[in-house]
Amino acid sequence: MTEYKLVVVGAGGVGKSALTIQLIQNHFVDEYDPTIEDSYRKQVVIDGETCLLDILDTAGQEEYSAMRDQYMRTGEGFLCVFAINNTKSFEDIHHYREQIKRVKDSEDVPMVLVGNKCDLPSRTVDTKQAQDLARSYGIPFIETSAKTRQGVDDAFYTLVREIRKHKEKMSKDGKKKKKKSKTKCVIM
């Protein structure tokens, strides 16, 4: 069974824990209790493949930012979460993405942009803004509501699919490099 290491990042209060708990335990946590770091595991079937999701729910508070490099190193894919009623959390996505790329030393890291709290009427981040940002990053965008469960499975499952595509691409690139290195030079 394939294991996928997913990391949920975003500013404090955007609903990272609520999304994760909704996926794992099928219930909505409405009281806000700032996370330092929590880890969850769940076995699911995605596109006919049974897999184990190892999900790291991270601290959004700035005082825990020193811990970010460590979990970013171990993560295979990242859910970059903002709240649709919090423009600052949307603007912060850029910083999370840049930090992930720096730590992973790669421009090509599996990510999904997630606009959470889409059940709320007080939207300050337009869907088109988020779609445009995701398009500019070359990553999928999904709106979710941890409260109603809308888009929750889709967000995590899409990230797994992005990781699969990335692994497939990397193995193809690896095979191309191996083929090239088999060419021999004969000096007579």
Score class of each variant (00 low, 15 high):
187 I>G: 13
169 K>H: 13
10 G>Y: 02
142 I>G: 03
63 E>H: 02
66 A>N: 14
152 V>C: 08
141 F>G: 08
28 F>Y: 10
60 G>N: 00
69 D>G: 09
118 C>T: 11
125 V>P: 09
60 G>Y: 00
100 I>G: 02
173 D>A: 12
21 I>K: 00
31 E>D: 10
31 E>Y: 03
159 L>G: 03
158 T>I: 09
86 N>S: 08
13 G>L: 08
83 A>F: 01
158 T>M: 07
31 E>L: 04
152 V>P: 10
178 K>A: 07
187 I>A: 14
104 K>M: 14
93 I>N: 04
164 R>N: 09
177 K>S: 10
5 K>W: 01
33 D>R: 00
47 D>C: 11
151 G>K: 11
45 V>S: 11
66 A>F: 15
10 G>F: 15
108 D>L: 07
81 V>L: 07
102 R>T: 06
69 D>K: 05
112 V>W: 05
70 Q>N: 15
30 D>Y: 06
73 R>Q: 08
26 N>L: 05
165 K>E: 08
17 S>A: 00
88 K>G: 08
71 Y>K: 14
123 R>V: 10
24 I>E: 01
3 E>G: 12
67 M>P: 02
73 R>G: 08
36 I>M: 01
81 V>D: 02
58 T>V: 02
173 D>I: 03
28 F>W: 12
78 F>W: 06
64 Y>V: 01
16 K>Q: 01
14 V>L: 09
125 V>E: 12
84 I>D: 15
47 D>A: 10
81 V>K: 01
181 S>V: 08
159 L>V: 06
103 V>R: 13
4 Y>E: 08
46 I>Y: 14
60 G>E: 00
12 G>Y: 11
17 S>D: 00
168 E>M: 13
162 E>H: 06
109 V>E: 03
83 A>T: 11
167 K>H: 07
56 L>Q: 02
6 L>M: 06
152 V>I: 08
176 K>W: 10
137 Y>P: 15
8 V>W: 00
181 S>W: 04
25 Q>N: 15
43 Q>V: 07
175 K>P: 03
56 L>K: 12
21 I>N: 02
130 A>H: 08
71 Y>F: 05
126 D>H: 06
27 H>K: 14
60 G>C: 01
19 L>D: 14
73 R>I: 06
162 E>F: 03
50 T>E: 11
166 H>I: 08
163 I>W: 04
30 D>L: 10
48 G>H: 11
26 N>E: 14
105 D>A: 05
132 D>K: 09
155 A>C: 13
107 E>I: 05
104 K>Y: 04
133 L>T: 14
10 G>I: 04
9 V>D: 04
149 R>A: 04
100 I>E: 09
14 V>T: 12
97 R>F: 15
54 D>Q: 14
70 Q>R: 15
78 F>Y: 12
114 V>K: 02
12 G>R: 02
61 Q>M: 09
82 F>W: 08
126 D>N: 06
99 Q>R: 08
115 G>K: 03
75 G>C: 03
72 M>V: 02
26 N>V: 04
48 G>L: 07
156 F>Y: 13
106 S>D: 14
66 A>W: 15
97 R>N: 07
36 I>N: 00
73 R>E: 08
41 R>Y: 02
186 V>A: 15
105 D>V: 04
15 G>H: 02
138 G>R: 11
83 A>Y: 01
158 T>S: 05
157 Y>D: 06
126 D>F: 05
103 V>D: 05
10 G>M: 08
39 S>E: 04
12 G>M: 14
59 A>K: 00
173 D>N: 08
156 F>C: 05
30 D>F: 05
32 Y>K: 00
186 V>S: 15
132 D>I: 05
125 V>C: 10
167 K>D: 07
183 T>C: 03
44 V>W: 12
152 V>Q: 14
69 D>A: 05
18 A>S: 07
124 T>L: 08
58 T>G: 01
76 E>W: 10
19 L>T: 13
155 A>P: 05
115 G>Y: 13
117 K>L: 15
127 T>A: 06
68 R>Y: 01
178 K>P: 08
25 Q>K: 06
135 R>Q: 08
103 V>C: 12
82 F>M: 12
3 E>S: 11
40 Y>W: 00
14 V>H: 14
91 E>A: 09
39 S>G: 14
113 L>I: 12
152 V>S: 12
50 T>H: 06
113 L>V: 08
95 H>D: 15
57 D>I: 00
149 R>C: 05
131 Q>C: 06
158 T>D: 03
20 T>F: 00
19 L>F: 11
88 K>V: 12
111 M>W: 09
58 T>L: 01
155 A>E: 06
36 I>K: 00
55 I>Q: 01
33 D>A: 00
40 Y>D: 00
157 Y>H: 06
129 Q>L: 07
2 T>P: 14
102 R>W: 14
153 D>N: 07
172 K>R: 05
56 L>G: 02
174 G>C: 07
66 A>D: 09
188 M>G: 14
74 T>R: 12
183 T>R: 03
42 K>C: 06
38 D>W: 00
153 D>H: 05
130 A>P: 10
5 K>F: 02
77 G>V: 12
80 C>D: 04
187 I>W: 15
51 C>S: 12
84 I>T: 13
98 E>K: 02
145 S>F: 10
80 C>M: 09
100 I>Y: 11
105 D>G: 12
58 T>P: 00
125 V>A: 10
2 T>S: 12
